[in-house]
Design a binder for these strands. Sequence first.
DNA 1: CGCATCCTTGACGAAGGTCAACATTCGTGG
DNA 2: CCACGAATGTTGACCTTCGTCAAGGATGCG
Lengths: 254, 254
Amino acid sequence: MPLACQAKITDTPTQISCLQCSINTICFPAGLDLDLRTELYNVLNHPPALERGEVLFRTGATMKGIYAIRSGAIKTYITDENGHEQVTGYYLPGELLGLGALHSGKHFQIAEALESTYLCQIPVEDLNRLSKDHPQIQEQLINLLSKQLHDHHKMVWHLGLKNATSRVAALLLNCSERCHDRGFSASEIKLNLSRQDISSHLGLAVETVCRIFGQLKRDKVIDFKGRQIDILNFDALNEYMGTKMVQKGKIPRI
Amino acid sequence: MPLACQAKITDTPTQISCLQCSINTICFPAGLDLDLRTELYNVLNHPPALERGEVLFRTGATMKGIYAIRSGAIKTYITDENGHEQVTGYYLPGELLGLGALHSGKHFQIAEALESTYLCQIPVEDLNRLSKDHPQIQEQLINLLSKQLHDHHKMVWHLGLKNATSRVAALLLNCSERCHDRGFSASEIKLNLSRQDISSHLGLAVETVCRIFGQLKRDKVIDFKGRQIDILNFDALNEYMGTKMVQKGKIPRI
DNA sequence: CGCATCCTTGACGAAGGTCAACATTCGTGG
DNA sequence: CCACGAATGTTGACCTTCGTCAAGGATGCG
């Protein structure tokens, strides 16, 4: 019986193996008998790849399943009446998507691929069916939900930071940490959000994000080329995120 | 067999009945047999009231159980090295606390009572034990977690809004909605956070929060006396939260 | 190659932070 | 019950940070 997905671990977040995946505890819980493994293998499916700009689900759509990202990246956002979008989340390989819709069965946000993205999906009906008979699976689901909740608490913390630089620093460190947790490099990260996406996520203007990136580069805290970011000085970044840097003239003009 | 808590529904969020409580589906799931009800009644306990300023749990503390607020209010916050605190959440009667700690067993934030607060608690070990035998309970827990996740997505959205007034409006509307969901008044809310707490939560200065409150009062969008807030014009508040209000001179000096 | 999209930088003004003074509320002890 | 002080809330003056507008550069795609 082959495992469902067997990608290799690489240095930059491209493809992820089941070992690093958020839902591997669901797909392949420890100490499971062969029958259940087989059944899981049968319900776990791989939708066709999403191309950049393609939408996985929209606001109000019925939840079809829970998704884990195998490779690529997804952003979630909401739009107001004027079509103006605000990014609410950014998901990396190995991470789960759309769990906030479990209780209502309806999605609240729009999920869009930022690049070619491969997913694993477990359809809700299969999940529900298997859950009924296997408390282990439910237990894992509870753990995953709790973990996500924890991550979101962190995000609320980061978004409540008072100045632009600390919010940018928090985003970079958060992304770095998540990459690291999945076995990728913590210092060389590909943040495939446009500057526009980043600014909308953090509640800033695009130009402010650019200027802060530029400043961090000049200060040799990070280096970047486009969306490929290299963190050079974690300590400095942590200080920027903390309260220390609320002093005068940290980001002078020119 | 008496039910565990039998408070009455009132107009302002003081005490909540089990009917409106988040965890009533856990305490008393529909179609449960008498044995399980009895067992639930036995594990559900009521810790002594917390007084204003008392701490329910701290960062790093072992999770003892899941808590629902019967009456009162709780804020959660984190502190940096300098002891500066940042509020990350605000919890009303009928709401759940500390679910983000389920996966690790350790709390990440500090939870502190904002006034005299009564709680219901289900100890983790009892929850785990009952969960093993009763998939219904686990299912409910999954629903609750998913609901919270959804709420936090909203919070991330609100905190990403670009200007101070819209963030304040979002907080007020969010609070109003949650009061309404629990059967309380949507327009007359007691937001028992200090201005300091609000500002720290929204990433603003205290003075800014005061000025925005003052402006909203002058514009007859809200009225307030201390922490008792009366929403007079929901449409206006919604517009403030949206993008419309990013025009010039909305908050002139005097 | 040419267009569209994204990124970057500058100049300027407005929103919001900081500092300071004062008002109000609340809790405590006389 | 009042008096006092501490904590909290409010307002004003001033200045920094950040948003806006505008222009130009880089990148990618057909």
